[in-house]
Each structure stands twice: as structure tokens, then as C-alpha cells.
């Protein structure tokens, strides 16, 4: 079985009388160590797709398997535990914790989710900060960093727990063209080094050039 298996999945949002079919009968499989991009116009269902794969949301219909586990059957607590152990997240607006330094932001999942020992933590954090090229900025707070630097720290934070799969919803939307391409290249380099699977969405043509596997969504359907 592939790393991610989406079987006949639909997601329907109901707001009052209006039904929005964000995803309609989508079937897709994503292999381990691949570098996958979802593209499509606004409202096509990219975020919905990533939320389902990222175990943040459940489908209205169909089955979602991540790492051979049927995650749509998990409860709240199981989902949280699964996300903590198996997944990493990179966000459009970076979402670094403003009260923590770059180092502490990267350390956060090791302390709060993984309960690693101090010495082990230090080794892991320094290593990943080094590979994203942020070691010399490790003691700065997020508001002292540029957008591109913040997103590098965020990449480090997503990777420090050594997840199988990293999800990133429009990770470059808040960045200038040059930083955007650099962040995507960094992600790909990390995939090459760690064999971590990356799935991200974008509607930036410059970024798409860096992609390997592209899935296009339109009105909630794969085309």
C-alpha cells in the first residue's frame, strides 16, 4: 500500500441550506519519499485535500489511509497523537510561536509532544537548524526574521520529529518569488536527504516549475 491512499473520498460542507462539494469522489495514492504538489484555482479543494491527508479533518464519504492506518476512523485524541508522531506541518503564515526563539520553536515538538531528553533534543535541533541553514540565527525571535527565514525555521520545526510525511498548504504564498523558490528547493533537498514525503499546494507558476508530481484539482475533482 502507498504511503497515502485516498479511496473515493467526498467532502461536503453544509452551511445553512447551501451545500458545497469541496471534494467529489477523489481517489489518489501517494508514494513514500515523493514530492507532490496540488494545484488548482481558488476554491478547487486544495486545502480540503491537505486537511484530510493531514488528519485535521474527516471526509464526509470514503476512506483515508495514511501510513497504512485508516485515519478517518480515528477519534480526536488518536488523530492528535497520530499527527504528532507521523506528520509535520508547514503553514502559509509560518505560524511560529512568537514568544519562542528560532531554536525553541524547533525544539517545541520535541518537548511538548515527544518528551525527548535534553541532550538528545539539543543534538536533533542543532542538526536540523544546520541543514535548513538557520544555525546562525537560532537565538532570534520570529519577529526578528525575514519571511523566508521564518519559513526555513518552520521547515526545521516540521522535520525535527523525523516525520514520514510533511504537509504544507501554500507554504510560499506569503513569500517573494526568490524566497519562495528557495523554500521549495530546501524542501526538496530535505526529501532527498531524509526520504521524507512532502505534499504541498500552490497556485504560483514559479513554484510549480520546482515540482515533481503535480495533481490538478478543479471544483473538487482531480483532472
Amino acid at each position: 500500500m502507498a504511503l497515502v491512499q485516498i479511496d473515493n473520498v467526498s467532502k461536503i460542507y453544509q452551511t445553512g441550506d447551501v451545500q458545497v462539494k469541496a471534494l467529489q469522489d477523489v481517489t489518489i495514492s501517494i508514494d513514500e519519499a515523493s514530492f507532490v504538489t496540488f494545484v488548482g484555482p481558488s476554491g478547487s479543494g486544495k486545502t480540503t485535500m491537505l486537511n484530510l491527508i493531514g488528519c485535521l479533518d474527516k471526509p464526509t464519504k470514503g476512506k483515508v489511509f495514511v501510513g497504512k492506518k485508516q485515519v478517518d476512523a480515528f477519534n480526536r485524541r488518536q488523530l492528535a497523537a497520530f499527527r504528532g508522531s507521523f506528520l509535520g506541518f508547514i503553514f502559509q503564515a509560518f505560524n511560529l510561536f512568537p514568544v519562542l526563539t528560532a531554536y525553541e520553536n524547533v525544539e517545541y515538538p520535541l518537548v511538548m509532544i515527544k518528551n525527548k531528553s535534553i541532550s538528545k533534543r539539543k543534538e536533533m535541533v542543532l542538526k536540523v537548524l544546520e541543514s535548513v541553514g538557520m544555525l546562525n540565527q537560532k537565538d532570534k525571535f520570529p519577529d526578528q526574521l525575514s519571511g523566508g527565514q521564518k519559513q526555513r525555521v518552520a521547515v526545521a520545526r516540521a522535520l525535527v520529529t523525523q516525520p514520514k510525511l510533511v504537509l504544507a498548504d501554500e507554504p510560499t504564498a506569503n513569500l517573494d518569488k526568490k524566497s519562495a523558490v528557495n523554500v521549495i528547493r530546501l524542501m526538496r533537498a530535505m526529501r532527498d536527504e531524509l526520504k521524507t514525503t512532502f505534499i504541498f499546494s500552490t497556485h504560483d507558476p514559479g513554484v510549480m516549475e520546482e515540482a515533481e508530481v503535480i495533481h490538478t484539482l478543479e471544483d473538487g475533482k482531480l483532472v
Binding site: L56, A80, A81, R83, G84, N95, Y108, P109, I113
Partner: peptide, 16 residues
Amino acid sequence: VREIGTMSAMGTSPGR
């Protein structure tokens, strides 16, 4: 709220 969402997405348990 967004910070809480981030913590929760990353897998921080509700208790934490």
C-alpha cells in the same frame, strides 16, 4: 486562536 490551532495541528495533546 491561531497559535492554539498550530499547537493542536502539530499534535500537542488537549491536556498539554
